[in-house]
């Protein structure tokens, strides 16, 4: 009981400032905004509107959406696709780096790890802003290429599209994907690798049959670490995306601040979190991540 006493101040703060606000958000999503007043009778109208069907489809990316208010669903799918692309890009980039630190660095591992963690602690706003400077119409890439005489007119497709947002998301998160992969590589019993070599495996066979499978928990953790927070990102689509590269986080902000429809914003936020949680759980289940963790204990 003494343990819970020690825990209680921090836990109380977390309950008061995380659990209660999220509960309030859920409650709000079942209310309705009518003009400037909030109608507090419980209703599923916001959710019904998000998923409400229509006979005339809205076509996005060649896919017809038979929805009366298609913006939230389309933006959510778009955000999921962008995060997924970023995640799939990040893993193969991070893996060799993690492998290098785990197996090739003899001394000074902590320096490499520190180099990879510093960006995590420095302002996300500034890191994204640096990309804006790079990709802008008169930015570093355009002016640099023109100064070198490679191009004669600035490329205007660098900024304000979903491709640019995906690149920046991948860049912002790639160094954090290294850490869980590194941890799982570091945990591999080296005698297993020696045994594989002694039994005649080539380097490649050894990697494919021992190292890669044993590092899968780290790869899965890294994928989740990149995917989960990027879907709802706000800074990157705001600075880099413009109107073409906006994501579901922008819609939530828009509904709360500009359109004065907080209940609808709350409903979109809840749907987004539910979908992310569902995908994450499905991913964990499909890859057998929980079994891997159980085996490791």
């Amino acid at each position: 009981m003494a343990g819970y006493g020690l825990l209680s101040p921090a836990l109380l703060i977390m309950v008061a400032m995380l659990a209660l606000p999220i509960a309030a958000l859920v409650l709000l999503s079942f209310w309705r905004q009518s003009g400037y007043t909030l109608d507090t009778t419980l209703t599923g109208a916001n959710y019904a509107r998000i998923f409400g069907l229509s006979d005339s489809p809205t076509v996005w990316m060649g896919i017809p959406f038979y929805l009366a208010y298609p913006v939230p669903v389309i933006l959510l799918i778009k955000s999921l696709m962008m995060s997924l692309t970023a995640t799939v890009t990040v893993i193969p980039l991070a893996y060799p780096m993690a492998y290098f630190i785990a197996f090739r660095v003899r001394s000074g591992k902590s320096i490499w790890i520190l180099l990879l963690t510093i960006p995590f602690w420095t302002s996300y706003l500034l890191r994204v802003f640096a990309w804006k400077i790079m990709l802008g119409y008169t930015g570093a890439i355009n002016s640099g290429l023109m100064a070198l005489g490679i191009i004669h007119h600035p490329l205007d497709a660098l900024l304000y599209n979903s491709g640019a947002v995906t690149v920046v998301l991948a860049h912002s998160w790639v160094s954090f994907a290294v850490l869980p992969i590194y941890v799982s590589l570091e945990k591999i019993d080296r005698s297993l690798l020696e045994a594989a070599s002694d039994l005649g495996d080539t380097r490649w066979q050894r990697f494919r049959r021992i190292t890669l499978p044993l590092s899968m928990p780290g790869v899965i953790a890294a994928a989740l670490m990149v995917f989960i927070p990027t879907v709802g990102d706000y800074v990157t689509p705001t600075l880099i995306g413009g109107s073409g590269g906006s994501m579901v986080g922008n819609l939530i902000q828009d509904l709360f601040m500009k359109r004065n429809n907080a209940p609808m914003g709350a409903a979109v936020a809840i749907v987004m979190m539910a979908v992310i949680a569902l995908i994450a759980l499905l991913f964990v289940w499909l890859t057998g991540y929980h079994k891997m963790r159980a085996r490791r204990r």
Binding site: L18, D233, Y234
Partner: peptide, 27 residues
């Protein structure tokens, strides 16, 4: 408890922000 306490790292900050905003302003 540990899982609950690490939730702020997983929930997008815009959701934390709007959730706090409505409990402060509306409730």
């Amino acid at each position: 408890v540990l899982g609950f306490m690490s939730l702020p790292l997983l929930i997008p900050s815009i959701v934390i922000a709007v959730a706090l905003l409505i409990i402060l302003l509306k409730f």
